[in-house]
Amino acid sequence: MISTQVALLKRELWEHRAIYVTPLVIALVIAVMSVTGQVAISAFDQVVDLAILGASNLGEAERKHAITVLMISVSVLFVFAMWILTIFYTLDCLYAERKDKSILFWRSMPVTDAETVISKLITSLLVIPLVTFVVLAITQIVVLTISSIWVSIRGADAGHLIWAAAPLTENWTATLIFLLALPLWLSPFIGWFLLVSAYTKRSALLVGFLPIILLPMFEKMLVGTKMFSTAIFVRSGQMPLFHGLDTFGLWDDNSEQLNALGRSGLSLLSMIDLGGFLTSPGLWLGLLVCGLFTTAAIYVRRFRDES
């Protein structure tokens, strides 16, 4: 049972190489940007030296703050890429095997449709975030190392300036929690995309997104209510992992929330409210919806005649 699931998860990594290629490409881009950025900045000799001097004289809290901002700026790209990757993966994973007819081979093995579809759900909820996290953490180390080399060349103490101030364990714990919580929170979309992937005969992307865009519009026009738009857009924006933080609010200038974040000293772990997240009805309702869509995907794979 477990060996079957492990084999199925391996299959996903073999088939969908984008799961690890995407974060690796982003890591490469960030590393290159980091090197070229620092070479470019080096042109402003005096300003840079002053900045490093200033940083050396900062208190530990400020340095920790600065390193955390640097680590977050690395993470942001990975988080966006992870979610886009998850969308494309879930829309493709049950569609591709029907398109190339390899489903007939997979179904000739003693593996149930439920085991197969669940392996794709586990890939979306667990494997993609974990792979992303590993590459992200290594990239952060690489970026900090590049910065260390750079400040060392300029005569500063990288150990004091960067490594002593880098709250690696704390930031990584917070990042890992966030990466695992995000797909759980967005799981209704994951379930829906899996169903579309199992069902659609063409253009999974279009079939996946049209109802998400059209349903709230029709609902507003025909019934006048906003149930779907609330369900879809509030879920996209308001993840109850951050003590009531509205992520949409972050885009507003002069946001009270941003100021509050600054006041908290930007400790990533203290921003996270895991208990609040795990006890929020929205999470469990979402997981229920995901479960229903996934069950439907299993039934479609089982009952659909591919001839």
Partner: peptide
């Protein structure tokens, strides 16, 4: 029907596991 992207060795690994 054999998936076009898979390697022969991976195919043997998979069948052996399941």
């Amino acid at each position: 029907v054999l998936p076009r992207w898979i390697r022969v060795s991976q195919l043997l690994d998979f069948v052996e596991s399941v």
